[in-house]
Design a protein around this nucleic acid. Sequence first.
DNA 1: TACCAGGTCTGAC
DNA 2: GTCAGACATGGT
Length: 296
Amino acid sequence: MKKIITSGEFFNPADTLECGQVFRFKPFFGGYLVFSGDKVCFLRSEGSEGSKGSEGEKTVIECIDGDEEYFYNYFDLAADYSKIVEDAKAAADNFGFPILKTAANLGKGVRILRQNHEEAFLSFIISQNNNIPRIKTLIERLCELSGEKKTATFSVGTVEYFSFPSACALAKKDESFYADLGFGYRARYMCCAVQALNDGFLKNAENFSFSELKNKLLCVKGVGEKVADCVCLFGFHKTASFPVDVWIERVYKQNFNGALIDRKKISEYFVSLFNENSGYFQQYLFYYKRSLSDER
DNA sequence: TACCAGGTCTGAC
DNA sequence: GTCAGACATGGT
């Protein structure tokens, strides 16, 4: 077992996991088990007697031998998030959007994950017109029925879990399989998406530009602007992406006095302001807006 | 019961 | 190109 220990000031486990970018994690011994593809790690805060984000706080990742590099990359540990938060505050001042400063202060512990490509792609197809608790349930069912059973041992004990099924493993599943799991009308989209994956449409996709990748994703039935933006951001770390969903639409109307109606145009508006920081700022705003509701 | 959720597709105009 | 309605499901 290996440990990665980082400062907790700009990496808060709860904020990072519960801000809606990822759906496979669960509470475990005061921290979280985080699943990605066929891997798992145990993520927790340590030494935080004071308030959240205090100087002495550490964030600890435990993983099995050989997975250190994977999770170092997954949690984007090479990036300097103090600069991103400062950029957000500066943008808030420059453009006169005080809410962005408030959101960045609240969400400064959020990191944009570098998720498994296939998992992010299929997960955000499931996410459409759905709520986060239900998305998590559907993905969990999918893994239990089609993933591989695995075990991993951490300092506090051993866990059993299921991997996210590969596109290959899902190749023979038909629409009724997903419908029986409760996917609703998304069952048809899942079949299309799995076939696209098995046809190799995401092969070498990490080398694509943002627009190349997004256009490719939009060719798949069931993938629209918002899902494509989420896959680009959370699966491929294309941070010039600004997904617009119902929550962001509310932020735009209520806090930015926005007059645009079309979500694609709202996204383009924010990207024109924030450029390569769009994805980070979007996540701060999304997390802030949702935290105001009682949903979580 | 009606509405909502990290939307997208389709057909009418 | 724009827009309204349909689409499955389960929680509130």
